[in-house]
Design a protein around this nucleic acid. Structure first.
Length: 380
DNA sequence: TATTCGTGGCA
DNA sequence: TTGCCAAGAAT
């Protein structure tokens, strides 16, 4: 279709809401683009689609600072999609450990293998083709199409939603304004340099049009912004009421025999799916804490360590008590269990919750018979 | 449309 | 200390 950005003159519809922003935004991006490991400088040829895809998956609900070291390790270990597709599941999951949202790691592998098996090792160049791959949703498909293949796809992420909500001073919460936001975003997307434009919108949201204290004084599209005109731009986007986060309790079991630790593989669906982990009790009402020690994976003399590990997930918080037991020998394993060498614990690929619990338990082992030098702020 | 799914930094 | 938030996808 025709360039929607220029379907009417800006002077006819004054820029009180929106207007043509792409030229000013791209000009700003040429001067202020963030230099990131997966990005090519403004106006230069696009990066390898594999690297664009990998970065976009890692960046889903994840900060640039958190994703960057993982991106460096992944591209060093797996320089191409073929390398990634050929790796073992366990190695991939361990490499992802600590980054969170582990369904991304499973889908990453499934996607790489689909690209090899169904697309001759080449990423599809269209939004539709990308959208059909595991782990690639509306945002990621549009981002890869725009950034790696130069297509004028409408890229809508959290940054874009916030920028649009302010440009048009939308009075409804984002959850309810999604269709309207997408509509505005599509009209603002230019036919020229769509990849740079998409990244410019995200940079704008990340560095200028921030959630709190937006820097309107130096914003390249302030003249088009209805929220800035109100004098209180931080009022947008309107925030919906947040649901209360329930609190749960559980026990993680740290069983050591012959300098080996009992680990299990978590089920393929649900929380921390497919990840190596400590055996655990159920996680539920803190009032039922007393009954959970009976859920140990094997019979032993369990000692409860204090304080518990406090961990916050997206939709609940958890106090995980750590129960420790020493066994004389490596006994029969529960289903899916393995004895892991304690000396190589950092290579087990434990999610952060269990890495924290293991650190707590290991410090307990180290000071057996002694009681000095607990490293961190242990408190009642 | 609403839930489920991690983690760490920061005000 | 607590809550907020980050380049969302799958169901």
């Amino acid at each position: 279709m025709a360039d929607p950005c220029h379907s009417f003159p800006a002077s006819v519809h004054p820029p009180k809401a929106g207007g043509v922003i792409a030229p000013d935004l791209l000009d700003w991006y040429d001067r202020h683009a963030r230099r990131l490991p997966w990005r090519s400088p403004p106006g230069t040829p696009p990066p390898d689609p594999y690297r664009v895809w990998l970065s976009e998956i890692m960046l889903q609900q994840t900060t640039v600072a958190a994703a960057a070291p993982y991106f460096a390790r992944f591209t060093a270990r797996w320089p191409t999609v073929a390398d990634l597709a050929a790796t073992e599941d366990a190695e991939l999951m361990a490499a992802w450990a600590g980054l969170g949202y582990y369904a991304r790691a499973r889908n990453l592998l499934a996607c790489a293998r689909a690209v090899m098996a169904d697309h001759g090792g080449v990423f599809p160049a269209t939004e539709q083709g990308l959208r059909a791959l595991p782990g690639i949703g509306p945002y990621t498909a549009a981002a890869i199409a725009a950034i790696a293949f130069g297509q004028a796809a409408t890229v809508v992420d959290g940054n874009v939603e916030r920028v649009i909500a302010r440009l048009f001073a939308l009075d409804r919460p984002i959850a309810q304004a999604k269709p309207e936001i997408r509509d505005h975003a599509a009209r603002l997307t230019p036919a020229v340099r769509p990849g740079d434009y998409a990244q410019a919108m995200m940079d704008l949201g990340a560095t200028i049009c921030t959630p709190r204290n937006p820097a309107c004084a130096i914003c390249p599209v302030r003249r088009a912004c209805a929220a800035a005109a109100t004098g209180d731009p931080a009022r947008y986007p309107v925030r919906a009421a947040k649901p209360v986060r329930p609190h749960r309790h559980g026990i993680g079991f740290f069983a050591v025999a012959e300098d080996h630790l009992l680990l299990v593989r978590r089920p393929p669906k649900g929380l921390l799916a497919g990840m190596r982990a400590l055996p655990v009790s159920d996680w539920g009402d803190p009032a039922d804490a007393g009954a959970r020690l009976a859920q140990a994976p094997l019979t032993a003399r369990w000692t409860l360590r204090a304080p518990p590990v406090r961990h916050v997930f997206t939709h609940f918080s958890l106090d995980l008590d750590v129960a420790v037991a020493r066994l004389d020998r490596r006994c029969a394993l529960p289903p899916g269990g393995e004895w892991w060498p304690l000396a190589e614990l950092d290579r087990a690929g434990l999610p952060s919750l269990f890495a924290k619990a293991a650190r707590l338990a290991v410090t307990g082992l180290a000071v057996t018979g002694k009681d000095e030098g607990d490293d961190d702020g242990e408190q009642a």
